[in-house]
Nucleic acid binder design. Sequence first.
DNA 1: GTTCTAGAAC
DNA 2: GTTCTAGAAC
Length: 182
Amino acid sequence: MTTGSWSHALIRDMKLPANQFMRTEAAVVMRDKYPKARHHFLVIPWADIDSVYQLSPADIPLLHEMRLLGVNAIETTGQSHDRFRLGFHMKPSMHRLHLHVISQDFVSDRLRYKEHFNSFVTEFFMPFESIVLELQDKGRIERRSQELIEHLLRLPLACNQCAFPCSTLPQLKKHLESHLDS
DNA sequence: GTTCTAGAAC
DNA sequence: GTTCTAGAAC
């Protein structure tokens, strides 16, 4: 194994039946190994697509199948669809396209860094529909600048559900718990 | 992606 | 004292 093998973990793990929460001929749903909210799924295609930046308009039917799998996964949680968002990270660390399906509580012991939170609540999280629209309009997904990526991940912490000010991550995490079951 | 850790920043 | 940041991981 090379030192970069961690970045191929999704490609490895999706093949293991124990990890396949759902599967079709096109894609697999896995639970995120380090969930950043109470419900956090990944939808990963079998096709060798590295990231959103390798997508073409021909992949739109696949994307819609991935979205449908994500919706099916949401339904197993018993929670309302509007408590979830589906989207892709602007700069993914792991190889193989993966659609995040994540509940918006962000209550998780695995949410440990400011960047974790900002990667899901800022424009760093690129909503499913906006990716489809960009593919339709431009024929591909244009790479974002490193400056923009760093800016988004370093934005001040702000609760995604209200205007409560949170200056530190421990403060935010405690505040997020107060939103549960509300 | 995560973990560990030292030093800075608060 | 607590939190954040940044770099290494053989």
